[in-house]
Design a protein around this nucleic acid. Structure first.
Length: 422
RNA sequence: GCGGGAUUAGCUCAGUCGGUUAGAGCGCCAGGAUGUGGCCCUGGAGGUCAUGGGUUCGAUCCCCAUAUCUCGCCCCA
């Protein structure tokens, strides 16, 4: 095939039957949103660069290396959004979503495209999609619980249980800073034993060293200062309440003192859902609290918590779960036109049936009756209507039930009633 | 950004120790059944063997580069 155009690296066309799975996920997220009383928000796919610099953090890889940047014709520095929390917060501030009148806001987003310039891998793309929620305005541990419950509800509704909830707390800004200093001091004293990657990270993002997969690092990490010992009383009791709420909701989790999130704005509760059905890119969903972000971006002091989940990874896991079998959408009726003279009548029958809510297809290639029947059989349709010269002359139609193979000639006027009662 | 593996029909994959017409299964189309699906039988279409260079009498095969996918690292959903 002579073809020099293709989808850009790290992007993907979502074709049937996979698109059915996407639709199913989107429907599920909508349903869970309704069940929890959340409403959908949609924000622009690009924003001013400064939004992400101020929220995600200038030093993070996401902002410093991975954003798709461009200058628009008005000279504004723009970025395709690498994540959604910043945009939602910006929108919430801009439109006063959290005020004294409306003291909290429950928002969700669905299949929203994000962009990061990374090296593609299975489950990691340059354009990827997330669903998630942002719960603005509540400082209560109930909010932390609800965010986790929401995420779990989506996965459970889709029918799988092969995931694992990891939980940690990062404390508040000042305890986190104190912990971070101690951690850096400790790591510096063990500098020689650290991996090359971690030596570099010591300068850029020391918390992430805790997450290192390099075996050189693991023994050192084992003796590192633990955030738990640096929590103030309020943070510690918040975390305790979150844990006991999870327990009473019968949600099992594991404490991961080394779980730190890559974005700067998190504090207190952070969590991740991982799947054993994925490779090294195994995080299905991640989230946590960001109580200072809204104020930092110029809004009123407003606590918040949320999560974001990757749709591509969910699709991979679902495919595996269902052994690659994706249910296709089936039509109700296939009209076989055996004689060209029947075309107009066939089209008008199709139109009438569609108005009555039936899904109707017919051949568009002028193929033989046999070919049309083959397609009808393959499409999984329930009924075939056969229209040939005999039926035309008698103002009748042949109705065949594909499950039994039984067929009968009926007056065309009786067709709709018969189908509706079948 | 770093290191490995891969790329042959619509799909999943064989294959050629470098030799002239590149194969299978599934799928697709047609016929057997001149107006009837699934099962069966027969036939058919469909490949510049990822792209561009090089070595060679000759390259799908060997070498180099590029692209894309993929595994691990980095990072993260």
């Amino acid at each position: 095939m002579v073809m020099d155009l293709k989808a850009p690296r790290g992007t993907k066309d979502i074709l049937p039957p996979e698109s059915h799975l996407w639709k199913e996920i989107e429907r599920t997220v909508d349903e869970v949103g309704l069940l929890f009383g959340y409403e959908e928000i949609r924000t622009p796919m690009f924003e001013q660069v400064s939004l992400f610099k101020r929220s995600v953090g200038e030093e993070t890889d996401i902002v410093s290396k991975e954003m798709y940047l461009f200058t628009d014709k008005g000279g504004e520095e723009m970025a395709l959004r690498p994540e959604l929390t910043a945009s939602v917060v910006r929108a919430a501030i801009e439109h006063n979503l959290v005020t004294k009148q409306a003291s909290s806001s429950r928002l969700y987003y669905n299949s929203a495209p994000m962009f990061r310039y990374e090296r593609p891998q299975m489950g990691r793309q340059r354009q990827f999609h997330q669903f998630g929620i942002e719960l603005l305005g509540s400082l209560s541990p109930l909010a932390d619980l609800q965010v986790i419950e929401f995420a779990l509800a989506v996965y459970q509704k889709l029918g799988f249980a092969n995931f694992h909830l990891k939980l940690n707390t990062l404390g508040n800004q000042s305890s986190r800073e104190k912990w971070r200093e101690e951690l850096v001091k400790y790591l510096r004293s063990n500098l020689d034993a650290l991996s090359e990657d971690s030596k570099r990270r010591l300068e850029t993002n020391p918390l992430r060293i805790l997450d290192s997969k390099n075996p050189c690092d693991t023994t050192i990490i084992g003796g590192a200062p633990n955030i738990i010992d640096y929590l103030d009383e309020a943070d510690a009791s918040h975390f305790d309440e979150v844990k006991s709420l999870l327990t009473s909701a019968q949600i099992s989790y594991s404490l991961e003192p080394h779980l730190v999130r890559g974005l700067d704005y998190y504090n207190r509760t952070v969590f991740e859902l991982t799947s054993t059905d994925l490779g090294s890119q195994d995080a299905l969903c991640g989230g946590g609290r960001y109580d200072t972000l809204i104020e930092k971006l110029g809004g009123p002091p407003t606590p918040a918590v949320g999560f974001a989940a990757g749709v591509e990874r969910l699709v991979l896991v679902l495919m595996k779960l269902r052994s690659g079998e994706i249910p296709k959408s089936k039509s109700d009726v296939y009209i076989v036109i055996a004689d060209k003279a029947g075309r107009e009548v066939g089209i008008s029958i199709a139109s009438d049936l569609r108005k009555a809510g039936f899904s109707v297809i017919y051949d568009l290639l002028d193929r033989s009756v046999k070919a049309q029947m083959r397609e009808a059989g393959k499409s999984g349709t329930r009924f075939v209507l056969l229209l040939g010269s005999d039926e035309l002359a008698a103002a009748e139609i042949t109705l065949k039930r594909m499950n039994t193979g039984a067929q009968e000639r009926i007056p065309r006027g009786n067709l709709l009633g018969l189908l509706q009662n079948s």
